[in-house]
Design a protein around this nucleic acid. Structure first.
Length: 257
DNA sequence: GCTCATGTTCCCCT
DNA sequence: CAGGGGAACATGAG
């Protein structure tokens, strides 16, 4: 379930459970999740390595390990969990066995993966170009980024090279709160609409980051996302589901302009 | 059986 | 070159 807010939750998990520990062993259950390194090489690099403070940029979790950096991406169905023992869970693809516990990298669809960046290596080779993390964006920065952009609003916000961390569900939530429709042309947004967009971005992240997830009840679009005939949690209008930028978008035709 | 899924990449158009 | 559409990737859930 990985967008910025979930990855931030896993970053906190790693900070609490893994930071400062040494790696006892690496268990690669599914070799395909290793994207730029083989299991042998990675095991040699990691064994005995001490884990540093985890960082996050957009949807990437960056875990310093010994002399290098482990970069984790979760695709559409990945997750990170911790257990005191080494028992494998259903969709585990890789285990990092630590001195006092075990980190589990799991994923059902295997769309994500792990990259190893040795000392002096180039992180951007793994992550591709990333814009500033969405959680750090000022209103002025957001205006500047969108000012250099044409086309529809939603694909712009989901472009990781423009702003890092926002995915389909976060963007739908932010646009719904800002009352802007996903297909709105970026170029025609007024100053007050841009301010509303930034305010909604901040509000959504402020509420969701501590949870490590989007709230799924109350006045949140997310609360009705999985219903067959969802209605707007604010005005009750029937919501629309359209493809925008290749993704299913949920939005309120009455309120979002 | 069928459709859809919180992501990214690559190819082809405009 | 930038942006948009579509397919591919892999596999489970409804």
């Amino acid at each position: 379930m990985p967008e910025l807010v979930q990855v931030e939750g896993w970053r906190r998990l790693a900070a609490r459970r893994a930071r400062g520990r040494r790696v006892r062993a690496l268990r690669v259950l599914e070799p395909r999740v290793l994207r730029n390194v083989g299991a042998r090489t990675l095991a040699r690099s990691l064994r005995g390595a001490r884990l540093g403070p985890p960082r996050r940029h957009g949807k990437w979790l960056l875990l310093p390990a010994g002399q290098g950096l482990l970069a984790l991406h979760f695709g559409m169905s990945g997750s990170l969990s911790w257990s005191a023992d080494e028992r494998e869970e259903r969709y585990d693809r890789l285990l990092l066995v630590l001195e006092d516990g075990c980190l589990h990298y799991g994923s059902r669809r295997k769309l994500g993966g792990l990259w190893w960046i040795p000392r002096g290596g180039d992180l951007e080779e793994a992550t591709g170009a990333l814009g500033p993390d969405a959680s750090t964006l000022s209103a002025a920065r957001l205006r500047a980024l969108l000012g250099a952009r044409r086309g529809a609003l939603k694909p712009a916000l989901m472009d990781q090279a423009l702003v890092a961390g926002l995915g389909n569900e976060l963007v739908d939530e932010i646009l719904w709160r800002a009352r802007l429709r996903p297909t709105r042309a970026v170029a025609e947004l007024s100053r007050s609409e841009l301010d509303a967009l930034h305010g909604s971005l901040r509000a959504v992240l402020r509420a969701a980051l501590p949870l490590g997830d989007l709230p799924r009840e109350g006045r949140w679009l997310q609360a009705v996302r999985r219903e067959r005939a969802p209605r707007c949690p604010r005005c009750g209008a029937a919501l629309r589901r359209d493809r925008v930028g290749g993704r299913t978008s949920l939005w309120c035709p009455r309120e979002q302009r």
